[in-house]
Design a protein around this nucleic acid. Structure first.
Lengths: 189, 189
DNA sequence: TAATTTGCCTAAAAGCTTTAGGCAAATGGA
DNA sequence: TCCATTTGCCTAAAGCTTTTAGGCAAATTA
């Protein structure tokens, strides 16, 4: 029989597409095999197990996100950088809901340290160079920004802000205004 | 044979405990049956299906959270109320990680409208009475607060802030300071 | 071309979900 | 108290996902 040309990379990529189509937690080794018109057991030569597949999708999503963020950040500073960076997350989540969910997967410490998660933290710090924050407030601010971006996007994705006025677009824009104002007037302890 | 005394309520309660012990997505009808030393099929007289169980756990968690929040809010205003409210979420997530995850489950619009989620929004609005915000900024602020609380707690739960200084306790405290300052100096559009 | 490696296959066990139908325990009326 | 009905948990069975083991044929290398 002809071979399907499976590789770990193609499976990961297809898994990411599947996640966007049917939701990350509907991603299953079986569904992936179906998509390649191949028997399930065949995938186990390329993937350790189901968890391995999910982890790979998560790492892929983190890389993609970091690449987009780096791109958006280039040549920008201050509020301009803040806005561009935040929009990368929101837009990515809208374009790729399954991948975005994957990116939030809990990784084991080693995997996390080797992942693009590190780049995300560095870029957030880079944004703060446009504001005047010394340690440890800078770290607090990094965490706050991460919380707002992740929190807003995930609540919005869950439908929390639909069906009520004003529309989410406006709240997002005003949230970024508020964060910018906050970073410029960071309160003393 | 003696009867086990299953009811939808007992199953939901036990499901919530199970979620805290093994993680919300490890909650399964089979595991629950095992816990009651009963055959799996028996649960289907009390639960429509697996999704039904998960939804019930989510609704239970939302109620518990709202009850705690209402309690914490009583007699408080301003930053005091803000802090107490925020800590309810964080503490609940620490005490009951499975339930907290359940509370973030995406509910269908009808279920969501009938859930305690509505109370949460009302209470957040109540906190804002201590600050001087008119609509539509009040709604924007409600959404921002929700995002920060959910975002922070969920990143912390995922281990995002461990293994690095300063400890999460301090960032949390400074985040609440920052939010208070922000609400007192909410920027004009 | 022969030897080796690689890739996908069949087979099978084990666990979760869900439906259908049955017997026994609880309940309540006569 | 006894009988009828309801209720609760059971057995059985089908369908799906995960994962391991072992096999044959295609691709690669010598």
């Amino acid at each position: 029989m002809a071979r399907a040309g499976l590789t770990t990379e193609r499976l990961t990529q297809a898994g990411a597409e599947l996640a966007d189509e049917v939701g990350f937690d509907q991603v299953t080794v079986s569904a992936l095999a179906r998509r390649f018109d191949v028997k399930v057991a065949s995938l186990y030569s390329h993937l350790r197990n189901s968890q391995d597949l999910k982890t790979r999708i998560a790492l892929l999503a983190l890389e993609e996100l970091a690449d987009r963020a780096a791109d958006a950040l280039a040549g920008r500073a201050g509020k301009d950088a803040l806005t561009a960076f935040a929009n990368v997350y929101r837009d990515y989540a809208r374009e790729h809901p399954g991948r975005y969910t994957a990116a939030r997967l809990r990784l084991d410490p080693e995997a996390a340290a080797a992942s693009a998660g590190v780049r995300h933290a560095q870029m957030t710090r880079a944004i703060l160079r446009g504001y005047d924050l010394a340690e440890p407030d800078q770290t607090h601010a990094v965490r706050l920004l991460g919380s707002v971006f992740h929190g807003y996007v995930s609540l919005e994705m869950a439908g929390g802000f639909s069906h009520s006025a004003p529309d989410s677009e406006q709240s997002w824009s005003r949230t970024l205004d508020a964060l910018d104002a906050l970073l410029r007037n960071w309160p003393a302890p």
